[in-house]
Amino acid sequence: MFLNTIGVTDKFVRVSLNKIRDSGVVQPDNSGRHIPKNKLPETVRMSVISHISSFPVYESHYSRARSKRKYLGPELNISLMYKLYVEKCKTDNIEQSVIAKEWHYRKIFNEEFNLSFYNPSNDTCDDCDYFLKVLKERRSEEETAAIMAQQKKASRRSRK
């Protein structure tokens, strides 16, 4: 009658009584508190992120106000990038067991990066490409200031 009144089974009562410690307190339920077997270790995740970040990205010139997407070269794809990642891991003598699977690599690429593989339909202008290249090769702060002034001047001309 007691079990029917509170709507539990005798198995529920038995399991609860087995969980009582010597102090009379019921042990906490540990379900869902283990690390999943397919969870990617943080070190492997960070190695994938650093590998993806090592590829040069390009920004769309004309549509950058509308989109924050960056672009990788059209010769790349996720499968090729993964193969390069595996080769890099092998040359660094990393064990096979700590190399990310392709589906992990793909998931990280799709969820943590805003990248695409084709050139944007509105590509960068020649002036911006030139100034970006020169800025990367600069040697001093004075050079940077002079290059930035030239770039502003050129962008004002192109808007007219």
Rank of each mutant, 00 (worst) to 15 (best):
F55G: 00
V57Q: 05
V57A: 02
V57C: 02
Y58G: 02
Y58E: 10
E59G: 04
S60N: 11
H61I: 01
H61W: 05
Y62L: 06
Y62C: 00
S63V: 09
A65S: 12
R66E: 15
R66C: 09
R66L: 13
R66D: 14
S67V: 04
K68M: 09
R69Y: 05
K70A: 08
Y71L: 07
Y71V: 06
Y71I: 06
G73F: 07
P74E: 12
L76F: 13
N77Q: 08
N77P: 12
I78D: 05
I78R: 14
I78W: 03
S79E: 14
L80G: 11
L80M: 15
L80A: 11
M81E: 14
Y82L: 10
L84A: 14
L84G: 11
L84K: 15
E87V: 10
C89T: 08
K90D: 10
D92N: 14
D92F: 06
N93H: 13
I94L: 15
I94A: 13
Q96H: 11
Q96R: 14
S97M: 08
S97W: 02
V98Q: 11
V98H: 10
V98E: 10
A100Q: 09
A100V: 09
K101E: 06
K101L: 13
H104W: 11
Y105Q: 04
Y105A: 02
Y105N: 05
R106W: 09
I108Y: 10
I108N: 12
I108M: 10
I108P: 14
I108S: 11
N110I: 08
E112V: 01
L115D: 04
L115T: 08
S116N: 10
F117C: 09
N119W: 13
S121T: 10
N122S: 04
D123V: 04
D123T: 05
D123F: 03
T124Q: 12
D126R: 03
D126Y: 03
D129P: 00
Y130N: 04
Y130S: 04
F131N: 02
F131C: 00
K133M: 03
V134P: 02
V134Y: 01
V134H: 00
L135S: 04
R138Y: 01
R139M: 02
R139I: 05
E141M: 01
E141D: 07
E142G: 00
E142D: 09
E143N: 05
E143L: 02
T144D: 04
A145D: 04
A145G: 01
A146R: 11
A146L: 12
A146D: 09
I147A: 03
M148S: 00
M148G: 00
M148V: 12
A149M: 08
A149V: 04
A149T: 12
